[in-house]
């Protein structure tokens, strides 16, 4: 069985995230990390592999430094990594991202299961897995908090908007998982050392047979016209609870017409 885990290198949420002059996310000037929500997908793949026999490949699309996210995946225990990197990809929208990732998944060959996090922590759209499902003609189950794989089938418990649902699909399938599904492991020292020797492939758009005109900022189907930094919220009145804090709180809510 072959599992491909899609991961993303994102600006660290605790750093000063910002946009560049062309209104795209600054991915170079801000410290990046493996998107926290992707760690759950990597962990799920590794635990499936430990229970049975599976090869786990981490796959990303992103600039040169995105290789760090793949390295983290390898350190956690993935078997191999694929980095789709090409200058023409800069500024790609979700539509183009799904196009490239779909081709990369197909090129990986004989993939049984594609695992992803529920969304990236930078763009937070959470649409790429559903787009891949359309493009590859594979079933997708999103918002999954429990997953069972066996006999060519996935059974997943998903937390939908208004209900919790058990959903079944035949493999190959795409599953995106929430942070409720497991507790991601930390890379061990042994894992960190072993990662250095694991297969690490780099693919360009040419390797995938994707036309550079179909991707990147100029091919995006939406355009950011304006980015404005919001003034930080300023603190209002902070009072000490001298036994009267509850009453002061009620008074504030009354002043603001909430009661």
């Amino acid at each position: 069985m072959k599992i491909v885990v899609l991961v993303k290198h994102v600006p660290d949420a605790t750093a000063d995230r910002r946009f560049t002059d062309d209104n795209t996310t600054d991915r170079v000037g801000v410290d990046g990390i493996l998107s926290e929500l992707d760690e759950y997908a990597v962990e799920e793949a590794l635990s499936i592999a430990e229970r049975g026999d599976a090869e786990v490949v981490v796959l990303t699309m992103g600039p040169a430094q995105a290789a760090d996210a793949l390295r983290k995946g390898l350190q956690m225990g993935a078997d191999a990594a694929v980095h789709v990197v090409d200058d023409a990809l800069h500024g790609s929208d979700a539509i183009a991202t799904s196009l490239v990732l779909a081709d990369a998944i197909e090129k990986s060959g004989d993939v049984d299961l594609v695992l992803t996090g529920m969304a990236s922590t930078d763009g937070t759209m959470g649409v790429v897995p559903a787009m891949l499902s359309e493009r590859l003609g594979l079933p997708h189950i999103g918002a999954v908090r429990e997953l069972t794989v066996g006999d060519g089938t996935v059974t997943a418990r998903r937390d939908g908007d208004v209900a919790s649902e058990t959903v079944q699909a035949r493999l190959p399938a795409i599953v995106s998982v929430t942070d409720q599904i497991n507790e991601p492991r930390y890379p061990s020292f042994k894992g960190i050392m072993a990662a250095k020797k694991k297969p690490f492939q780099t693919w360009s758009l040419d390797d995938l047979g994707v036309d550079a005109d179909q991707v990147g900022l100029s091919a995006a189907w939406s355009v950011v016209t304006e980015v404005t930094k919001r003034p930080p919220r300023s603190a209002g009145e902070i009072v000490d609870d001298d036994g009267n804090g509850g009453a002061r709180l009620a008074e504030f809510l009354a002043e603001r017409k909430f009661v």
């Binding site: 930080p232 919220r233 603190a235 209002g236 009145e237 902070i238 009072v239 000490d240 609870d241 804090g245 509850g246 009453a247 002061r248 709180l249 009620a250 504030f252 809510l253």
Partner: peptide
């Protein structure tokens, strides 16, 4: 730092009073 109004205190006493 982002609150329009804040009470420094234990929610277990402040909330019931409010």
């Amino acid at each position: 730092a982002m609150a329009d109004f804040g009470v420094v205190g234990d929610l277990h006493t402040v909330l019931p009073l409010a």
